[in-house]
Amino acid sequence: MKNWSLARRKHALQQRANVIQKIRDFFHEREYLEVETPYRIPVLIPESHIDPVPSDPWFLHPSPELCMKRLLVAGYEKIFQICHCWRRGERGDRHLPEFTLLEWYRTGGDYLNLMEDCESLIRFLATEIGLGETLVYRGRAIHLTSPWERITVDEAFRRYTAVTTREAMDQDIFDEVMVRDIEPKLGMEKPTLLYDYPAERRSLARLKKENPSVAERFELYIGGLEIANAFSELIDPEEQRKVFNSELEIRQSLGRQVYPMPENFLNELEAMPPSAGIAVGVDRLVMVLLNAETIDEVVAFTPEEL
């Protein structure tokens, strides 16, 4: 019996393969080295809200970040990777518990350079697959011509909500406001680069020198869909350890499993040159390029179909 649900996706999967091939072309052209790091790892980045899939007694990686940064420190100056990642419990129209990430890291430069990289990469891909300068996503024409919209988190709260970033953080409603009032407005006419997150949401990003209440971190949105997350990397091991500790405390207070510190990473971090790194959701990127309603339409199998 023919599986028509799979058969129908043939065009999307051909285009997906094409996009991934072009991503490789883009980075090879810029002399990035494609790396492969282990999918199964013993330690994780302490993050409040990411749950790994156990692979006894280790884990399937939720992202290749730790290993790629260790390569960066070891002198691999420009690297990229396209790989599957796993995050437990994440399933919806825009989420799969097993999904594909593209990450790239560059020595020197900061998150501003990554914003330019994003523009170049996505404009290149759109041209290569025949979309030109405009893509249509969910009935909207989104123009890819430079420059893209750049808006700080503070500005987005001012423009789209009745609360300030600070108030949202203090009232513990940052995520809710973001999802309900801000995200649906982002990247509707042009892609939007939302940048300078509150310091508490720094993750592995460094704080801004001129304004340490925010972190040099940005997210890329196209048609309301979050496509990428990027940092000017934090390279101070002591500061990073503090951030990890507070993330672990949050995990503990939420009753989540608490994992050991990634000591090897922290030991090597002191040798990291100023760098910047970014993760792009490949499935979602394909969604916006192909005008797909759900993530299910751009993968060969969803967990429910196995």
Partner: peptide, 14 residues
């Protein structure tokens, strides 16, 4: 029903 998870934030069920 919609599952959401804003960047590095918590899982939200709208």
């Amino acid at each position: 029903f919609e599952f959401s998870k804003p960047g590095k934030g918590q899982a939200l069920y709208r």
